[in-house]
Amino acid sequence: MNDSTEHPLRDALHAQVRESGGDAAGARLAGLADGALRMARRRQRLVRAGAGVAVAAAVATAWVAVPDGTTPRGHVVQPAAGDSNGKAALMSLLPVTSSTERACAPGSGGYTVPARATHPELCVRTDRAKGMTGVRVASAKAVKSSIDGAWQVEVTLNAADRARFAALTGSIAPAPAPRNEFAIVIDGKLWGNPYVNRSITGGRLEIVGSFVGDLTSAAVHDLAHRLDPGT
């Protein structure tokens, strides 16, 4: 896919809207086409940017079926309050084992993503035994993406965790979706579940939420402050 605004599906849907006089259903379909194209182009630019960074970006999947004409948004979880010892928050990076269209049962260990206009309620389950838990990052900072201007937290791992992260992402990359995803869990909350297609050896990842534009400036700065050991 190139970065042109021309695309057969998009053009056909917009033509349908014009012919129908701009009815609501046609406009919603056109909005979905526009949103899917924006996400696909962002993914393409991120791939061209090279290896070494995992991004919790929006992925257009089969369950994104009811557009509302706006950019899809995922579950936004506010960070928990700092602990009494003032220690930096710990992060877990856990391989995803399943993602089903229902809320997780209480006590099941899964993470529920509430329903939105663009997707149903989801239960994301993970394998803690094969993941990385209790990760204290080397650094974390709030930044704005140079690609789309979305706020995100840029995390750098230490040398030991960098090797573990490379092994984790390398082991899940060949698996079919959603088992090629890993969950980013902080303070017991799901902050995103990006997919990978190769081992990530650079020791860096970016937290942008479940969908593009999920996180506000305040949420990103708060989370970076919670994670960074130097603050």
Results as ranks from 00 to 15, higher is better:
Phe165Gln: 01
Asp214Ser: 07
Val208Phe: 11
Val64Ile: 15
Leu93Pro: 00
Ser146Leu: 14
Ser210Pro: 07
Gly203Arg: 00
Thr5Lys: 13
Gly35Ser: 11
Gly86Asp: 02
Ala138Gly: 09
Arg43Ser: 06
Phe211Thr: 01
Gly149Phe: 08
Ala175Met: 06
Cys123Leu: 06
Gly109Ile: 03
Lys144Thr: 01
Asp3Ala: 10
Arg136Tyr: 09
Leu215Ile: 12
Ala224His: 02
Arg164Leu: 08
Val155Glu: 04
Leu190Gly: 07
Gln16Pro: 05
Ile147Leu: 09
Met132Phe: 03
Pro79Trp: 01
Ala224Pro: 04
Arg45Glu: 00
Ala54Tyr: 00
Val66Cys: 15
Val220Cys: 03
Thr169Met: 00
His119Asn: 06
Asn2Lys: 01
Thr97Arg: 11
Lys189Thr: 10
Pro114Ala: 12
Leu122Ala: 04
Leu29Pro: 07
Ala173Arg: 03
Ala173Pro: 04
Ala138Arg: 14
Ile186Met: 06
Gly202Ala: 02
Cys123Thr: 05
Arg125Leu: 13
Phe182His: 03
Met132Cys: 04
Val143Phe: 05
Val220Glu: 03
Ala24Ile: 14
Pro174Lys: 03
Arg204Tyr: 07
Arg164Val: 08
Glu181Leu: 07
Gly26Leu: 01
Arg18Ile: 12
Val212Pro: 08
Thr71Pro: 09
Arg162Trp: 05
Trp191Ser: 04
Ile172Asp: 01
Leu122Cys: 05
